[in-house]
Design a protein around this nucleic acid. Structure first.
Length: 287
DNA sequence: CGGATTTGACCAGCGC
DNA sequence: GCGCTGGTCAAATCCG
């Protein structure tokens, strides 16, 4: 914990915390690295629709052998007002110099972030949604996380031989995006950055209730930060995915604005708990 | 044939 | 102001 706090404010410490690999978290430290800890990380993950059972035993590995402990680091980057409010005390987490500009709170008051999808038409400001990143040791780039993603771009990354891939959720009403890239330092490490929160249920795995890897991951990381558990890629079984998603109620009822980031985050200091309501994809439950 | 991926182009933000 | 870089779009292509 101390390490994490230290790491949060000190990139060098972050590197240290990461274990033997030397992370610089270049991918997101422009946003400020955020390290989960205790209740906080649960709350944050909950913001992304990952419901964590507070009393989850700190166990590694389900019976399915999905989990393996590795020494690596979890990094998060999050920079919404929500996170800012929750870390007000110490975490000067070099937050978001560039993003979430203060003006936004005054300007966008009545303009809920339109689907950032169409994002880049002239004059439109990009709206950053809360996001976090984590590292996964994996051979495969695209880890199965229970959701379906459509790749919409790929870019070469500066100082990295590996390209960065951009995905968005295939659910038309879901604005969640994720970036996947490999660490230039350790090609076996995949850095996944999520942005936004799913407003629908995950796609289930077969065998009734096997959770998504990342949800499981979230559940695993909540109790302890001393280790980082990465998901082992299950062999993809064709036709075994079953969609159980539901309409984006929260989103729809909110007048089409995103349920992912509270539109009034600036005007109404959100609590860790209530930030997103209780949008909890059932598939996310740790059994 | 429909959906997913690839890839070049475009745009915005940021630093110098 | 300019160049660099990240992020997104959209047409072309691929694949089941």
């Amino acid at each position: 914990m101390e390490d994490k706090d230290r790491a949060a404010s000190d990139p060098a410490a972050a590197t240290e915390f990461a274990g033997d690999t030397s992370w610089t978290l270049a991918a997101d430290d422009s946003d400020g690295a955020y390290f989960f800890s205790g209740d906080r990380e649960r709350s944050i993950l909950r913001e992304f629709g990952w419901n964590l059972e507070p009393d989850q035993p700190n166990r590694i590995g389900s019976d399915d052998g999905l989990w393996m402990p590795v020494h690596s680091s979890l990094t998060g980057s999050i920079e919404p007002a929500a996170a800012a409010s929750s870390r007000s005390n110490n975490q000067s987490v070099s937050s978001s110099s560039s993003e979430d500009p203060p003006e936004k709170s005054t300007v966008s008051d009545e303009k809920p972030p339109e689907i950032p999808n169409k994002g880049k038409k002239k004059g439109q400001k990009r709206i950053r949604q809360p996001r976090f990143a984590f590292m996964t040791k994996s051979e495969v780039d695209h880890l199965e996380d229970g959701y379906r993603w459509r790749k919409y771009g790929q870019k070469a990354v500066k100082n990295s031989p590996f390209p960065r891939s951009y995905y968005r959720c295939t659910n038309s009403k879901c604005t969640v995006k994720k970036r996947v890239e490999r660490s230039s330092e350790d090609p076996t490490i995949v850095i996944t950055t999520y942005e936004g929160q799913h407003c629908h249920h995950t796609v289930g795995f077969p065998r009734g209730g096997i959770i998504s890897h990342e949800a499981a991951f979230a559940g695993q990381l909540a109790p302890t930060m001393s280790q980082f558990y990465y998901p082992i890629q299950l062999p993809r079984e064709s036709n075994t995915f079953r969609t159980i998603s539901q309409p984006c109620q929260a989103q729809d009822e909110a007048g089409g604005s995103s349920a992912i980031m509270p539109a009034d985050a600036s005007s109404q200091p959100p609590t860790d708990e209530g930030l997103l309501g209780d949008i909890v994809p059932p598939g996310m439950r740790i059994r």
